[in-house]
């Protein structure tokens, strides 16, 4: 099953790009998190990018760090996250689900075992924030064995050599970094230079989704106009959770409004 391929086919037919929200599984607790994830799908997310709670998220800014802290304060375990993902997958058989996580969660379980478990939970892709191409070999092998797409990051400073390697190994989509730094809505993404997007296609990298610093519909539109296949928005989505911890109903209503507006901006002229 190639859920990303199917998604991009459908979006091309619709003349649209993808909107992909990110939240951390288990934030603020398993029960509410499940409602949040279902809401994102019902509100029109084309795919999901989901974090697993982690103690030391070095690639994340304060917003997504706080999501991990909330989940861990609720004693959420990786095992519970996989159970949740399994339930979401049963309910929504088509939507691509990606995990974005840190290497030690994978190492701790054993690389092959972790990928197998993710695959059994219905996960389509895995992106490991702290595994660069240079360390990717065993992870790529496990991905292949378990039928998971290994998502690779194209940073704005990528050399031609890096781009060529991404082209060789990428599947699913390519995570195009909107800027340097860590995740967060405080610093806006820079719209990728046409040159960078061209290079990605020249090296036959999987379709690029732009992430880091995407919080507004205008940015989604600009990313797609610049040639990205879609946009990922994490901190802006997680901020809505953080601001409504006492009122799940309002939280879900605001997420609905946000995702609908971001999705509407993916329509090409």
């Amino acid at each position: 099953m190639d859920r990303y391929g199917d998604m991009f086919k459908r979006l091309n037919a619709d003349n649209a790009g993808a909107f992909v929200p990110f939240v951390t599984v288990g934030d603020p607790c398993i029960e509410t998190s499940e409602k949040i994830i279902c809401q994102l799908i019902e509100s029109g997310a084309d795919a999901l990018e989901l974090g697993l709670p982690y103690s030391d998220p070095i690639a994340d800014g304060p917003t997504i760090q706080a999501a991990s802290i909330r989940a861990r304060e609720s004693k959420v375990t990786t095992a519970q996250c996989f159970e949740l993902l399994g339930r979401v997958r049963q309910k929504y058989p088509q939507i691509p689900i990606g995990l974005l996580l840190y290497s030690n969660l994978v190492m701790s379980a054993g690389i092959e075992a972790f990928y197998k478990r993710a695959s059994e939970a219905g996960v389509d892709s895995i992106l490991i924030a702290d595994v660069p191409l240079r360390e990717a070999k065993p992870f790529l092998a496990a991905a292949e064995h378990s039928g998971i797409n290994q998502i690779l990051i194209a940073p704005p400073n990528a050399s031609d050599e890096t781009m060529a390697l991404i082209g060789e190994h990428s599947s699913g989509y390519t995570y195009l970094l909107g800027r340097a730094g860590v995740t967060g809505a405080e610093t806006a993404a820079e719209i990728p230079a046409a040159e960078l997007v061209d290079k990605l296609s020249q090296y036959q990298c999987a379709p690029p989704l732009l992430g880091f610093g995407i919080s507004k519909p205008e940015q989604v539109k600009a990313a797609i106009d610049a040639g990205a296949a879609g946009a990922i928005s994490g901190s802006a989505t997680v901020n809505i959770i953080a601001q409504n911890l006492d009122d799940t109903r309002t939280m879900l209503a605001q997420l609905d409004t946000f995702v609908s507006a971001m999705k509407a901006a993916t329509q090409k002229d």
Binding site: A59, P132, E135, L152, I153, A158, T162
Partner: peptide, 18 residues
């Protein structure tokens, strides 16, 4: 050499490799 036996390596975001 980036490793000492099995240990060491460069487990950082791609962004920091350059």
């Amino acid at each position: 050499e980036a490793k000492f036996g099995d240990f060491g390596g460069m487990y950082v975001p791609e962004l920091l490799i350059p």
